[in-house]
Design a binder for these strands. Structure first.
Lengths: 101, 101
DNA sequence: TTCATACTTCGACATATTTCGATATATAAA
DNA sequence: TTTATATATCGAAATATGTCGAAGTATGAA
């Protein structure tokens, strides 16, 4: 395994090493359909404000955590009007599973 | 998932978030038989000195990394004379795999 | 245009991590 | 007992991370 691969994985692990971020990712992974997401009820539940409230963190902190998860390649975000569409990169999660097998 | 579980997992992820530590764990996981370890050739290969040399780190740094991996519950260490017997906690690795499934 | 909503960026501060060299400890060999 | 080997601990320095509040940006509604 080369240096780039190792560093890619360690970046993903670092993103998951913060309890708030891990919670966010697990929550997203458990409630977002794999194909994409454009539901109605989940929209509100996945707002940064809601995560901030649940985790007892400021909204700016949650924004920072989303950025970290995105930069680590664990999720995708795109804007659609007022909403931010989030999708989990399940391939990345699977690559971690394989690594530890 | 409760707070303790989340923190246990984030501690494991943190342990894996350093490239040197990740390398160490993967190397150990790939060369140590699951039942335990008391071979001859691998003894030398698994010495801290050898890891230090391979990773370009000081021995004290590698010792610190071993401690982190142990405290995170990812491996076990016990002394047997001059040697340190290391075994990877494969159950912990499996628990991570399940978490991300 | 003005307002409300959702998210990002900035600047700052406190805390944590990484790494080292030096030193200490434990064990076995000479 | 002295020496060699393997690992652990200590103290310090540089860097990174987590967190906040305040201000900025983008979008849609009134």
């Amino acid at each position: 395994m080369d240096t780039d691969e190792i560093e890619k994985f360690s970046r993903m692990f670092k993103a998951l090493s913060n309890p708030g971020r891990l919670r966010i990712l697990l929550e997203l992974a458990s409630c977002i359909p794999k194909e994409g997401f454009s539901g109605t009820q989940q929209e509100q539940e996945n707002s940064q404000q809601n995560f901030a409230q649940c985790l007892g963190l400021a909204q700016s902190t949650v924004s920072h955590h989303f950025k970290e998860l995105r930069q680590a390649g664990l999720l995708y975000m795109r804007r659609d009007g007022q909403k931010t569409i989030i999708s989990v990169n399940f391939e990345a999660l699977e690559s971690i599973q394989k690594l530890l097998k």
